[in-house]
Design a protein around this nucleic acid. Structure first.
Lengths: 158, 158
DNA sequence: GTGAGATATTTCAAGCCTAAAGTATCAGAG
DNA sequence: CTCTGATACTTTAGGCTTGAAATATCTCAC
């Protein structure tokens, strides 16, 4: 007689595998992130967080609220304030008080910001193609779908 | 007559897919990391970097050099110095000047550090099982192998 | 043994990041 | 109108992170 159902044993061993998966995912992400950080600094004297912010603003040419940015980028409000401050200092972004609500400020890229972002984005895309080039094209699709499913599932619950 | 070989077109479209994959991977990692960070803070008043350092030291009960730690964790030397400083202040880690070489210091967990890490590690494993529970067990294995292959490939080249 | 370059670690300045507290504004109940 | 709670944003304290400069020590050719 077996004292533990097989399904439970399966779940347990699956959990070990999940832990291993997480560690590998974290490590892979860090390796690629470190490489991107280094290249952004070297070629554009910029950073990943700045790139992320500019990328979000590029897609929303009308501009975004600070709170939209922090929600979209999954970072805190105060964090966005600092990054935007530095982008404004560099002339890549402007804060505007447009609508009636005096609490909000709409931030958007300046023409100079658009130009800078486009150059960075082109390089970024080439770098990713190079860095992930070792992953088989068929597997890229599978993997991408899995991660998308994970995230949809997560957001459904939270 | 086709001006661009099909293989090139394939490579191009695969690159777009790789970019999407990277963005999804980064986002998934951030979601899970944010959740872990929050729980480590809430339940153990600790952080992810501290957990990583303690995890490395736990596996090497004889202790590690600062430079071994920074190499293993993929972070800079100066970074490790700060994290170890705080762990020492908390009584979880000791720096020892053992061998002949007066430049190096061997850091290792104290009994209190071992005890604290074991409690955190148990919770951490449960959390990962919960957070990645939505991923099918068969896919976990596939995914894990892919990432392992990616990293081996990367380290072969760098 | 001694001087040059290599190695181990720390310090520093600057930027990223969070949670929590602070400021200003808004919206709605009464 | 005015009070109350919600919302948008900034500020602050503390920790993480890097790359580069600073210290200290080691190694080894001479």
């Amino acid at each position: 007689m077996v004292s533990v159902p097989l399904s439970v044993i399966d779940a347990r061993s699956g959990d070990k595998e999940r832990l291993r998966l997480w560690i590998r995912m974290l490590r892979t992400t860090r390796i690629v992130e470190a490489e991107l950080r280094e290249r952004l600094k070297r070629d554009f004297n910029s950073t990943l967080p700045r790139f992320d912010v500019m990328s979000a603003l590029y897609r929303e040419s009308e501009g975004m609220l600070m709170s939209d940015l922090s929600r979209f980028l999954l970072v805190s409000n105060g964090n966005v304030t600092g990054i935007i401050d530095r982008l404004v200092a560099d002339g890549y972004v402007v804060r505007a008080k447009r609508d009636g609500d005096k609490r909000t400020s709409v931030v958007r890229l300046t023409p100079s910001g658009v130009e800078a972002f486009e150059r960075m984005a082109a390089a970024h895309e080439r770098w990713i193609a190079e860095l992930l080039g070792g992953v088989d094209t068929a597997e890229v699709h599978r993997l991408s779908e899995m991660l998308h499913a994970f995230r949809s599932n997560w957001e459904g619950e939270h």
